[in-house]
Design a binder for these strands. Structure first.
Lengths: 368, 368
DNA sequence: CTGAAAGCGCTTACAG
DNA sequence: CTGAAAGCGCTTACAG
């Protein structure tokens, strides 16, 4: 447990050169099978842990990636961070976090800080309405397919479509869509999808929370009870956060969910499955999104130093748009008195197909 | 924008030695005022950015800290991450994240991975009921004052006390405390505080969600409506997450909040201010906690290489227990018919003092 | 006040 | 298959 053993210690202990030890450890250089084994054994015996600093200095690669989110305080951050950390870790990279606290300028600063810290590349989940310019290093952007330069994202539009179809199947013909800002590509895509589903089959209206709060203050009532009285039977929020607000506001107003109206969200935030009623929502496949973002980033990095096995493979657009998963829970149900459509069972019970798409749609029960 | 300039480039450009440049940049070595200025100007001109890898290799310090959370997916993670990132960043350190996905073993592995990556020290927010052993590197533990070896934490017990007093002042005499696991120090402290407040002045009962779910499945009803009918007038959850569950369950059961019963939480999660009714809760001072944790960690690190200005200053226990802040919102109010006590105004309106403690207690309105 | 030199731990051509 | 050597960019005693 003295100071960490290094290549030189191993070399000395075995009477070989550090170059050979280095080659044996990396598995790159040709070292005889046997010497290789001996070296690796000795390394383990001495508790050798490679010095990333040494490696970084000689290769010019830190094997650290930066993760910058518009707002680290966003409740979706844990899912992102977990998935990115996992994917990066699998690929042998560490993840350095940067926070821009929702500020556009700070976003750029955060990115630069991470680069100065030696990050080989950056994963950015940009702030609404922000574009990431050239930062002189590889970047992977996770936003929305409709964002120019986007690397990979959930298929928000189709997610909206599925939510819309789900509500239509339940008999809903009048839905209020609840969003926050009109400058978010993600939200606009989700809204676009919902509207597309309802086009010609029902009416949609749009509520921007941001605007209402600008006039009436943060946390103001959204007037949903009135809408329900006027005949709106479904509230489709573009985020679970807003769906939560809708559910509590309606409940407080004495409106029953899903008896009187249905409510749906997006993102499957951690509490979505345990509130009453539990929330029907669309979930991103963060693991896959993270894997693709990281793979893309690493491919860019390898490209840079010509280490790449082949010229960077063009990634097809559909690989960059990841299907979302519909999670049907209690907050959405058939319109008052209407019998449930198709195979739909109203409550948590087994998988249920909810759209004509060949896409997997599952009812999930939380496991924790 | 060619490859980054280094110390040697600056030295050449100015006809001085790299040692001098290094000294000028670090401000440590004695370099004449003027030469110093010239060097720094040239550095700026060349767009010099120090190589952390080079520095790390020669100093043996990476200037990177690791942040390990029991469960990165916990909704409190954003607050932790943001505060830690900020404090570390201010101190010139980067933050590498590690995730143990709620698994105890994985927690140790995550810590080790970060250390192998060269982290100079680790901030750990440990999993319930876990103790962090010696990991051969400086550690700062953020858990609860009652955890042995804890570095700094919110004063959860007092937080519980304040919540308890707040409810007592409102006239409540029967409270149901809602927790998850009995092996969490944080939860136990919070519960202990609430009970202490009620001792001799009212009755408390305890609900462990974890146990109920083990028998009845995740997301099962907690039977709160029945409790309300039996005369419980307040539900004090040890986390906003559980408070949310309580609020929706009660609302769905037709019970009015705060008309019929009051509900309180802990942590002031992001949505606490915008649900209906908005949630009364206790908030940690994450910024301060993070600052202290980081300062402690850095002091340990400096101690290690004798760079410390003075022997490590003993930190008094009360500096390691950070007061929580009571945030009164709509979900808590006077017991049916009882006039509001003292200066208490029922709804969001200006600061209101809620306890006899000299501690600041504010009604907050969200600003975003 | 300034500089020459060694060293941090690794990798990578290049010889042998 | 193996080794000697240079170099990545910095810092740090030690001389001058």
């Amino acid at each position: 447990m003295a100071s960490r053993a290094n290549l030189s210690d191993i070399a000395k202990a075995l009477g070989v050169s550090v170059a050979t030890v280095s080659n044996a450890m990396s598995g790159k250089g040709r070292v005889s099978q046997e010497l290789g084994r001996t070296i690796r054994e000795k390394a383990k015996e001495l508790g050798y842990v490679p010095s990333l600093a040494g490696r970084a200095l000689s290769t010019g690669r830190s094997h650290v990636l930066g993760l910058v989110l518009a707002d680290i305080a966003h409740p979706l951050f844990p899912q992102f961070a977990q998935a990115i950390e996992h994917a990066a870790s699998e690929a042998g990279y560490g993840v350095l976090i940067g926070d821009s606290r929702g500020d556009v300028e700070a976003q750029t600063r955060a990115i630069n800080r991470l680069i100065e810290r030696g990050a080989d590349g950056i994963v950015v989940v940009p702030r609404h309405g922000t574009r990431i310019g050239d930062i002189g290093r590889p970047v992977a952007v996770i936003d929305s397919a409709s964002t120019p330069g986007n690397t990979v994202a959930a298929d928000h539009w189709n997610g909206g479509l599925e939510i819309g179809r789900h509500l239509l199947e339940l008999g809903h013909r009048s839905v209020a869509i609840i969003g926050l800002h009109s400058d978010s590509n993600v939200q606009n895509d989700r809204i676009g999808g919902i509207r597309e589903a309802f086009a010609g089959r029902g009416e949609t209206r749009l509520i921007w929370i941001g605007e209402m709060e600008r006039s009436h203050g943060s946390g103001c009532p959204l007037g949903l009870v009135r809408l329900a009285e006027e005949g709106v039977t479904a509230f489709a929020a573009v985020s679970d956060l807003h769906a939560l607000r809708a559910i509590t506001e309606l409940q407080q107003g004495g409106i029953s969910i899903p008896g009187d109206v249905s409510v749906t969200g997006f993102d499957d935030l951690i509490w979505a499955g345990v509130i009453a009623p539990s929330l029907t929502t669309m979930r991103m496949d963060m693991e896959r999104i993270a894997e693709i973002a990281i793979a893309d980033l690493i491919s860019q990095i390898e490209q840079e130093d010509g280490r790449a096995t082949s010229p960077r493979p063009p990634v097809s657009p559909d690989q960059r748009s990841i299907p979302m998963e519909l999670i049907i829970r209690q907050s959405s149900g058939p319109v008052l008195g209407l019998p449930a459509a198709g195979a739909m069972t109203p409550v948590l019970a087994g998988p249920a197909s909810s759209s004509t798409e060949p896409r997997r749609s599952t009812t999930r029960e939380g496991s924790d």
